Amino acid sequence: MTGSSIPTVTGPVESYVAIGDSFTEGVGDPGPDGTFVGWADRLAGMLAAQAPPGFRYANLAVRGRLLGPIVAEQVPRATALAPDLVTFCAGGNDILRPGSDPDALAEQYEKALVQLLTRVGTVVVCTGFDTRGVPVLRHLRGKIATYNTHLWALADRHHCPVLDLWSLRSVQERDAWSEDRLHLSALGHERVARRCAEALGVEAAAPSSPVPPPAALTAAPSLPAAGPRSPAAARRDDLHWARHHLLPWIGRRLRGQSSGDHVEAKRPELLPL
């Protein structure tokens, strides 16, 4: 299934609010000033290019957030802002937790979706990535697929467009991911923004502000070169990743800490882009 099977937006989008976790905040895609850009900011640039003057955008996403806090904190705020469009990407961090239940998560997601639709013109439902090629996370593929199936069903039930990340083959390439293998690179974020624009029926012929020019959309320099690797090189890459990214991530989980502790939303107000 792809986003094109769900009704797209009608008319120009004049206001957009993004809610979610590190994926929507844009982690892995640093801008010139050190703040993250990310696919939602890039999508906002595409929408602004086609909207009447005065297009407004807010990004409430915060890295590390679980579905519960997103529903409790970001959903009411987005509902109160009553924009034309909301992208709702949440639940991925919950799926990573042992013992999480994708059925229960989907029920919680749907209640929040219904709340958003009381005031929001269009809500985009976001599926999870296919992790079959990701060390450790490949073992969660079944739970992600179950959650995605629920998301497709509720999107159909509530007539919402879908940002289908599971079938987006271009983000299964190594250059679409940052060194930590958990967050997209600038190139990956650009590909997601274009997929979301496609799901909305929005023209995305060229990036626009605040999107960097295409020449800047390259993979992180620290990523290993694309192409075949020897088994020894693959093991070295995996050990480097485990030492510098996986073990610190596990340590935070054991300590009950989050990368988003003490982090505020980067665009909390619905303001002109």
Results as ranks from 00 to 15, higher is better:
231 P>W: 04
179 E>V: 14
164 D>W: 11
42 R>D: 02
272 P>F: 05
134 V>L: 13
58 A>D: 07
242 A>M: 07
103 D>H: 13
242 A>N: 00
78 A>G: 06
153 A>T: 09
257 Q>I: 00
3 G>F: 09
139 H>F: 14
273 L>H: 02
268 P>N: 06
140 L>V: 02
70 I>F: 10
264 E>I: 05
59 N>M: 10
118 T>C: 04
118 T>W: 05
115 Q>N: 11
46 M>D: 11
91 G>Q: 09
10 T>C: 06
138 R>G: 05
163 L>Q: 14
193 A>R: 03
229 R>Q: 08
135 P>F: 04
92 G>N: 08
55 F>T: 06
113 L>E: 05
70 I>S: 09
265 A>G: 02
113 L>I: 04
246 L>Q: 00
197 A>F: 08
18 A>R: 02
73 E>K: 07
64 G>N: 10
252 R>T: 00
80 A>N: 08
262 H>V: 01
2 T>L: 14
62 V>M: 09
123 V>R: 06
232 A>P: 00
73 E>C: 08
194 R>N: 08
267 R>D: 01
68 G>P: 03
80 A>W: 05
217 L>E: 01
123 V>M: 06
71 V>K: 09
104 A>R: 15
166 W>H: 11
22 S>V: 03
6 I>V: 09
267 R>F: 03
228 P>D: 02
161 P>R: 10
162 V>H: 07
